[in-house]
Structure formats: C-alpha cells, structure tokens
Amino acid sequence: MISFGIYAVLNITLVILAAPLYLSLIKKVKARIQRRRGPPLLQPYYTLCKLLKKEVVYSSTSSWIMRFAPSLNLACMLTATLFVPLVAVPAAFGGFGNIILFLYLLALAKFFMALGGLDAGSTFGGMGSSREMSISSIIEPVAIIVFAALAFVFHSMNFFEIFAMVSQTPLTQLNPSLLLMAISLFIVLITETARIPVDNPETHLELTMIHEAMLLEQSGRTLAMYELSAAIKQLLLMAILINIFMPGGILLQLTVSGVLIAVALFFLKSVALAIFIGIFESYFAKLRLFRLPSFLLIAFFLSLLIILLEVLA
C-alpha cells in the first residue's frame, strides 16, 4: 500500500496545479460551440496571480467572519483533497476518505462562505447566501442519498476502498446501476459547482447569480482563495465521477512510471469530462430558481431507483 504521507503530497500538488485548468477548459469548449475563440487555457492561473497582487478591500461593516471565511474555505478544500485520491489509493488513515465526513466538510466550507456573504450587510451578499443555502438544502440530501446508494452497492463508506474495489473489478462485471448513479452524481457536480442550469458562473447580472453574488464583497487575495477553492471542489467532484464510473489506471502500488501513466490517464479522462460538461452547459438554459427543485429531484429519484434495485435484487 502507498503511505499516506506520499499520497497527501502527490494529491495536493496535483489538485492545486490542475484544478484551475478545468475552469478555462470548460469555458473554452463553450466558446468554441458559440463560435468564439474563448480565453487562453492558462487564464485562471493569470487571474489568480493578478488577484494575489491586488489590494484587498473589506467593507467597513464586516467583521472577522469576512476575513476568516476565505481561509477556512480553502483549508476545507485542501483537507477535502486528501479524501479523494486522483491517481493513487493510499493505505487507510484516520477518518480520511470517509464519504460522510467529505460531504460535511464541504458543508462546513459552505456554512462559512454563506456567513461571509451576509457579513458585509449588502443586499447582494445576503441574496447570494440565501439562495445558495436554499439550493444546498436540496442538493445535499440528494448527494447524501447518492453516496448512500454508492455505499449500498460497494458495502463501503470510504472513497479509498471504493476506488480500489472499482479498479480491481473487470469492466464487464461492474454493477449496471452505476450508470444511473453517474447521472445523479453528475447533477450533484453541476449543482455544487454552480453551473448552468442551476447557476451561471459567468453572469454578472446580479439578479440571476447565486454563488457569485455571495462573493461580491470579496476582493484581492481573499477572492483568489475562493476562486481556487471553487476550482478544487470542481476537480474533486470530477475525480469522484471519473474514478468510479470511468475506472482503470488508478494506482494501488507506487512506481515512478506508474504515477506518470496514471497522471496521463487521469488527465485524459478529466479533459473528456470537462469537455462533456462544456457541451452540456451549452445545450441548457439557466433554470428559474423555483424550477430547480424538480431538476434536482431527478438525481434524487435516480438514486432512489438504484437503492430499490439493490433492495429488490
């Protein structure tokens, strides 16, 4: 088994380096579909560097919550990185890899992000927080159900074990209900990363935005931290999807050549997924806020179906 320390360094480095790339990749795909050229692929890195240099402006109304929330958010995402192996499954270590702990870690980050949105006392921040929490109060139960279905299928609550199990099972013997689960998990991914049709990450029309409205008061390096954590969150959720539904190539033993091949494979798969997300986004319009519950319930019912299948099988 791979020791946890090596895994931690490998995983965190990979995630931090690669995460921003997928933001621009999706943008690029969307731009291409709209016959535009789109931003350069390295744009998010430039943006992050720029933001790090810029001045931070705190609202005079805001308190320490505003200053604390971005750090906590990024710290949560970095810790969450240890839960989802990208290319190599480590030996079990403490509570890491636990599905529920992972979900609640994301919830902790969101809790403080929403408080940060309310802190400055501006209407937009409050609106963003309110909407974000409303949506998350529907999508998080769905996520829990999806993961419960996962636990039902694999008889495990740990990403490390599940990933290892998937990679050791031949493709033909995998449970077909995984396909249904992939759809549910994809909807969770779309919602949690604030993408169309749930939210629009690009709009700056105040009344239609949710996630971005919450961050409106952030500037400079605190904004950079939020952007980076959003990118990390997206990559982690993508990695879950990839390592369960597009298995193969994940390492159980550490070799230098193995790591290189695994990284290359993961890169290919994640680029494919990002392109798919881009295409998916292009073919949908943003839904009205109160139409969202029905969209999110699709994910819920699909995972319910999986569990019923498992129950009755």
Binding site: V57, S59, S60, R67, F68, S71, L74, A120, E217, G220
Partner: peptide, 23 residues
Amino acid sequence: LVIALFLAVRFLNPKNVRISETW
C-alpha cells in the same frame, strides 16, 4: 491549514488592505 492561511492573508503584504465602503 486554517491558521496558516489566515495568518498568511493577515500578515503577508498587510499594506495592501483597505477598509472602506464596498460597492
């Protein structure tokens, strides 16, 4: 991680911080 990040934001380049009315 939280403490390290918080201190980094707080004390690295502290002159680049302004407290003012936001938009």
